[in-house]
Simulated scan of single mutants.
Amino acid sequence: MGAAECYLGMGEFQFANRPLRLRTLLGSCVAIVLWHPERSMGGMCHYMLPSRQQAPGMPPDGRYGDEAMMLFDQAIARYRSQATDYRAQVFGGGNMFPRQQTEGSTLDIGRRNIDTARRLLAERGIPIVAEHLGGYGHRKLVFDVHSGKVWLLFQEENRPYPRRPQ
């Protein structure tokens, strides 16, 4: 019998210790994949923005990187494991609006999402073993929770032409 499948939309999170395939489609969003190699379990988040001002007492919202990581923290505790036992893979953070920004612009959500993922994983001591980040285009991602394998299809779009001097 094959693994069940689940599509993660923006802001969704899934964690399992059974055969399950997680799929998603990324632009400037980032997906963090965590996998525990000894226990064949793990999960994926798909977040849109690095963070927000969370109201006290509100549950974590997977649309934000820092809160998606809180969901991982909760799952890791629920399965009585340690964050450092997991391996991370990070995908996405594409530049979807290259003509609307300048170098270092705060509009580069993809870059900010990438930086957030790296920082959150480093804070928890979770090593990043693979990544495919940035660029100009979309990514289709499939994660097999039981085996830990990840399949990626990257559809690169044309890079923006340099602007001509006015």
Rank of each mutant, 00 (worst) to 15 (best):
Q14R: 14
G92I: 10
R80A: 12
H138T: 12
L120E: 14
P98A: 09
L34Y: 02
Y136F: 15
I126N: 05
E103K: 05
I109H: 03
G93S: 10
E38R: 14
E131T: 01
H132R: 14
G104P: 00
T84E: 14
Y64E: 09
D73K: 13
R164K: 10
A55G: 01
E131Y: 02
V150N: 02
R159I: 03
E123P: 01
L141K: 07
M44W: 09
F97I: 03
Y64R: 11
A88E: 03
M41E: 12
R119K: 15
L20H: 01
L121Q: 13
N158E: 15
P127W: 00
P59N: 01
F15V: 05
Q155M: 10
M10F: 08
Q89E: 10
Y161Q: 15
R80P: 02
A3C: 11
S51K: 09
G2D: 15
E131H: 04
M48I: 05
S147M: 04
G110I: 02
L120K: 03
K140I: 06
L141T: 05
L71E: 12
L26E: 04
C6M: 13
R21K: 15
R63E: 02
N95S: 05
R164E: 11
W35I: 03
H46A: 09
N113A: 05
Y64L: 11
A83Q: 13
G43H: 13
L34H: 05
S40G: 05
E131F: 00
